[in-house]
Simulated scan of single mutants.
Amino acid sequence: MAQKAVLIVFAHQSAASFNAALRDAAVQELTDQGCRVTVSDLYAMKFRSSATQDDIIGELKNPDLFQYGEETMHAWMEGRLSDDITAEQRKVEEAQLIIFQFPLYWFSVPAILKGWFDRVLTQGFAFTLQNMYSGGAFKDKKAVLSFTTGAAETMFQPDGINGDINVTLWPLQHGILHFCGFQVLAPQIFWSPAHCPAAARLQMLEGWRARLRGLLTETPLASAPCELFDLSFQGGFTLRPAVKEQQETRPFGISTGHHLGKPLPPNNQTKAPSEDSTDSRK
């Protein structure tokens, strides 16, 4: 069996952090399984978070009106992206699984990781309007968010002060990862480790190690397949009429984002369908 390649994109500044311990646990467990593990330590690499004209080598296609997406797409096609972007894209191409390890900042990722998404997942390389979501460029790859929070789990419940964590995760898991085709695995969330006793943090680490032993074979989160939509500008990339009609009698929306004005399907962004029998597509 061919050796599996795993990329860990790590975004924390401190080697003594709990995030670093989680990274190290993943490296050890996956290496023990025979995987080839690569770590992109973004702070150690001093990875630039700003998507700018400096990402393009050579002349611009339209110097009068700089459009980052268009220019980087052409630069990718012509081999003119900056070396740091090209190196990360090569790692993505080789990986069957990508783990993003980070602390949750302002309901999202640290700026340096957002910059990785902005700069590495260029148009053409990671997506096109013809190849996105379930038909995306990375449909044969898996990705998982592993992150720590400052807030307690109760604060991210549907009745908690921060709101439903499923809603928080939708832009990251659906809007970035699944948009590029990734099979998105259920997130690994470490609730408020800074406010937990040492024994609780050790238990979290052991839980992560246990999950890592089967991570490569996990079922992805449920998503709305592209065939449910009219994928044309004339149709507006909206649900097909027959699909809307079928959904009228369902108790929940299709997904967290495709709620159709109904209650959100429970745990849509936190548990795979096999773990939750409320998959509204069934």
Rank of each mutant, 00 (worst) to 15 (best):
P110L: 02
T249L: 06
Q173F: 06
C35I: 09
W191T: 06
L42V: 10
I99W: 02
T86H: 01
L185G: 04
D55H: 02
C180R: 11
N19W: 05
G136V: 05
F182V: 08
G214T: 14
D164I: 01
Q234A: 14
C226P: 00
I98E: 03
P63C: 04
Q101S: 13
R281G: 08
W116F: 13
E59L: 07
R213W: 03
T52H: 07
W76A: 08
N162M: 13
F66R: 07
L239Q: 05
P220M: 05
E59M: 03
G69M: 09
G136E: 02
N268C: 08
S255Q: 02
L121C: 11
T72V: 15
E59A: 14
W116L: 06
D276G: 04
A25G: 11
L22F: 07
A242T: 11
R250I: 05
L121A: 06
T256V: 14
F229V: 05
H178D: 10
L221N: 08
Y68G: 01
R211W: 05
F147D: 01
M77Q: 15
L65S: 04
E29W: 08
H74T: 14
H12S: 12
G135L: 06
L260P: 03
I98K: 06
A16T: 14
S274E: 15
P241D: 06
L60M: 03
F179N: 09
M73S: 10
F252W: 15
A194V: 11
A16S: 14
A25I: 11
A152H: 10
G253A: 06
F107W: 14
E227I: 04
L221Y: 08
P63M: 08
I161G: 00
V120E: 02
T149R: 05
S280E: 13
P63L: 08
D276Q: 14
T249K: 13
F237K: 03
Q96T: 12
K114S: 10
T249S: 15
F66E: 03
I98F: 07
P225I: 05
T149K: 04
